[in-house]
Design a binder for these strands. Structure first.
Lengths: 209, 209
DNA sequence: CTCTGAACTAGACACTGACAAGATAGCAGC
DNA sequence: GCTGCTATCTTGTCAGTGTCTAGTTCAGAG
C-alpha cells in the first residue's frame, strides 16, 4: 500500500497470499474469493489470475509455503530438543500441533487436497520433504532394539496420526473446551509427555487394552 | 424416480440428501451445488430451500444423520468386542476409522464446522451423544488402577486424536500408499492391536522416547 | 364445496471463477 | 532519444452459483 495508484502493484503476489491467509483464518478457505482479494489489494478482478492461474493455484502456492515453514518449525524444535538431550520425536509432535495452532490457515490448506493443484511440481516436492522429515525423526528416535524396518513406518504413522488428529480436532473447534482448560500447549505436553521433565513420558503411552 | 412428472416430488428431502452424499464423496463438499442437485432430482432450483433453508442446512442435516450412524457403528463394534471378551476402546477406535472409510462424505461433513449451521439444535444434540459415547468407552476400558478422573479425559483424547488423525489423513489421501500395502483395515489392526489376537496389543504402544 | 398450508416453480439479484483481448509499464539493445 | 519485448494489470464477458420473493399447484381437513 506504499504507492497506491501505480499501474503495477509491485508486490501483488505477496499481498494476495497474505490477505488470503487472513481471510482463510477468519472464514475458512471456502469463503475466500479471488475477486474480494483483488478488491482489497486495490487491483482489478483479473489480476490474480496472472500470478496464480486459478483459485487452486493460489491455494497451492500457500500450501507449498506452509509445508516449508512446517518443516522448518519441526526441524527447529527437534534440534533444540536434541541439543537439550531430549528425544526428537515428541518434540516434533508438539511442534506439529503448535504449528497448526499458530498458522491455522496454512495448515488447513496444506492438508486439503481438494483445494490444491494435485500435479503441481513444487507441491509434490514440498510434500516429499515433509514426509522424509517425519520419517527421519522416528527412525532416529527408535530404541536400539529396533525391529524390522517396516516397524519404523508404523511408529512414524502412530506419531503422525496422533499429532495430526489433535491438530485437526483443535482447529475445527471440535474439542470440548473442558479438555484443554489451561490451553493447547499444556494439553500437548500432557499428551506427548513434553513437559519440563524433558520429553520422556512417564506413563506407558496408551495404557493396557 | 417412480412418478417423474408429479408436481410434488414426494421424497425430495431424502433424494437430495443421498444425491449430495454421492456428490460429496466424488468431488468434495465444496463442489456440491444445490442447483445441480435440484436438476438431478428433476426439480426447480428453488425447491431445496424449502427442505433445508440454505446450503448449510443441507450439510447440517447430513452431519446429524452421520453422527447418529457413527454412534451406532461404534456402539455396535464395542458391544461385539465386549461380548467376545475384548476391550471396547480399541474396537471402537477401529470402528471409528472404518466408518470414515466407509462413509467418507458423512465423515467429511461431520467434522467440517465451516459447512454447518453451528447453532442447529439437532446438531448440538447429536454431537453431545457422540462425545458421551466416546468418553464412555474410555471410562469403561480403564484398568482398575484408575488415576483421578481427569485422566480418563486425557486417555479418551489420546484414543480420539489417534483414530481421528488416521481417518483424516486416509480420507484426504495424504497417506503414502506404501504405508497401507494391504489395505486400511490391516493397517488399523496393526496400529490399534485389533487383529485376531483380540485387541490386546503386544508391544508397549509408543515405544521409549 | 371452500379453505389452508405444505411443496414446489419461476424470476430476479448480486456474486463468483474463468477466459480472452487489450492497455500499460519498465527494461534491454540500439 | 527510440524500438521492440515481456511481465503485469485492466476491461468486458460468460456460465454458474446461493438466496430472496412472489406466485402456482396440490393434498387433505373442515
Amino acid at each position: 500500500m506504499g504507492k497506491p495508484d501505480r499501474y503495477h502493484h509491485g508486490d501483488l503476489r505477496e499481498t494476495l497470499m497474505s490477505a488470503a491467509l487472513v481471510a482463510i483464518a477468519r472464514d475458512g478457505a471456502a469463503a475466500v474469493s479471488l475477486r474480494q482479494l483483488a478488491r482489497d489489494a486495490g487491483v482489478s478482478h483479473g489480476a490474480p489470475a496472472h500470478h496464480f492461474g486459478d483459485r487452486a493455484g493460489l491455494f497451492t502456492a500457500l500450501a507449498v509455503r506452509g509445508l516449508d515453514m512446517f518443516c522448518a518449525a519441526l526441524s527447529d524444535a527437534a534440534e533444540k530438543a536434541a541439543a537439550a538431550g531430549q528425544a526428537r520425536l515428541p518434540a516434533s509432535g508438539k511442534a506439529y500441533v503448535l504449528f497448526a495452532a499458530a498458522h491455522p490457515a496454512l495448515f488447513e490448506v496444506m492438508f486439503r487436497p481438494d483445494l490444491l493443484d494435485r500435479d503441481d511440481a513444487d507441491l509434490k516436492a514440498a510434500r516429499g520433504r515433509a514426509a522424509a522429515l517425519l520419517r527421519g525423526f522416528v527412525a532416529e528416535s527408535r530404541p536400539v532394539r529396533a525391529d524390522p524396518e517396516s516397524d519404523v513406518g508404523l511408529e512414524a504413522l502412530r506419531a503422525w496420526t496422533h499429532a495430526h488428529g489433535l491438530a485437526t480436532l483443535w482447529l475445527a473447534g471440535n474439542l470440548p473446551p473442558a479438555m484443554a482448560p489451561d490451553g493447547l500447549e499444556a494439553l500437548v505436553d500432557r499428551l506427548f509427555g513434553t513437559g519440563d521433565n524433558g520429553g520422556c513420558d512417564s506413563d506407558d503411552g496408551r495404557g493396557a487394552a
